[in-house]
Computed example of a mutant assay.
Amino acid sequence: MDALTQGTDSLSDSDSGDNATTTSASASSGTSVSGSTETSDGDGEASRGSGIDSDSDATDSSDPETSSGATTDSNTSGGPDSGSGTDSGSGTDSGSGDSGTAGDSGTDGDSGSDDTGLSDGGGGCGFRTHTQGGWGTACAGDNPGCYRDSHFAAAFPDGLVVGCDVYAATLLNSAAVERALPTGGTPRALLPEEETSYDGSDADPTVNTVFFGQVIALALNVAFDANDDFKQDADPVPLGELVIVDPASACLGMSVASVLAEANLALGACPSPLSPADLTACAALINESFSDSEALCSDRLALPDDDSSR
């Protein structure tokens, strides 16, 4: 039922601390979420596109902290948000160096609290997600950071891989995720120096694109959905099978797993029909859908049998 088999969202999440938006990525198997495609050139390596959205006005959906407006995100390093538009996605990300020219709609306000993910909406409820801000918090009480610390190794024994083929980044442990997130900046593919391993040390590169943070958050949400203690109920349908039904989304009709796969392709600059900006928004839409107890989840995602876009 995916409208696209291979392939902005200013929805604000109540999770405070998130800088992210846009989407698409490969289905997470629990150990790796890289959307590799064998687009081989002569030497066997995948060919890659520019991975950079030529539309400088594209919405930089980097999950802004909408709950407090001018909060300072201590997890990002870099310069101040230089975007000329309203940064509605990365909040007052004091270090993300968001250079997007349009409103950064990627950072939500994931405060890191244990969100219920429940709503009175229609299909697709009973799931849980966190934004990149939530996943980037340090462990405190029962927040997303604690869940990440406790379950990362089991879900990603070889590290969390985002990107495609050899054009990928590997987050080796939970500390690497905490240090990397949230991210801000114009949606784009990884740079060569960013296609490396991250271990949570000061040697890790600082990645100034919201796309990176949104894909990581989506991969975590899809992988952790396999755990009974992460879901809000015993719904047997995987998060990856839910379908985007928001008519304003570039990913309308696509499943969550398809978005993740396409996002990984675009993040690694492998061929994808969707731009980094589009995929950032799609990823943010998914990441924010079940992180707020007030979320109207039926307006964004639906169970496969309820897919109204077919």
Rank of each mutant, 00 (worst) to 15 (best):
D43I: 11
S14Q: 05
G79N: 12
T21N: 03
T72G: 14
S68V: 11
D18L: 06
A25S: 13
D53R: 05
S47N: 14
S12G: 10
S26F: 06
A46G: 06
S50H: 00
S54I: 05
S50T: 12
L11K: 00
A46W: 05
P64A: 11
S61K: 07
D18Q: 02
D73A: 02
E45V: 06
R48P: 00
T22S: 08
I52D: 03
S74W: 00
S88E: 08
S67P: 09
D43M: 05
D73R: 01
T23I: 04
A58W: 04
I52Q: 08
G83M: 01
S74A: 13
D87Y: 04
G30F: 09
S77P: 06
G78A: 08
T71F: 02
T59V: 10
T31N: 15
S94V: 14
S50E: 03
S54L: 13
D81A: 11
S36E: 09
D93W: 00
S90G: 15
S77V: 07
T23Q: 03
G17W: 02
T31E: 12
G17F: 02
S54D: 14
G85L: 12
G69P: 08
S61A: 12
G51L: 11
S84V: 14
D93P: 03
T71M: 01
E45Y: 14
G44D: 10
D15P: 01
T22V: 10
S24Y: 03
S29T: 15
G79S: 13
S50I: 03
T22A: 05
T86W: 13
S26V: 12
P80K: 03
D60H: 09
D63N: 08
S68H: 12
S74Q: 09
A20Y: 04
D18H: 09
S82M: 04
S94A: 15
T22N: 07
S12A: 07
G17P: 00
S84M: 00
S26G: 15
D81W: 01
S16V: 11
D81S: 06
D87K: 13
L11G: 00
G42E: 13
S47E: 13
T86A: 14
S28V: 12
S29F: 07
G51K: 09
S54Y: 07
D57K: 04
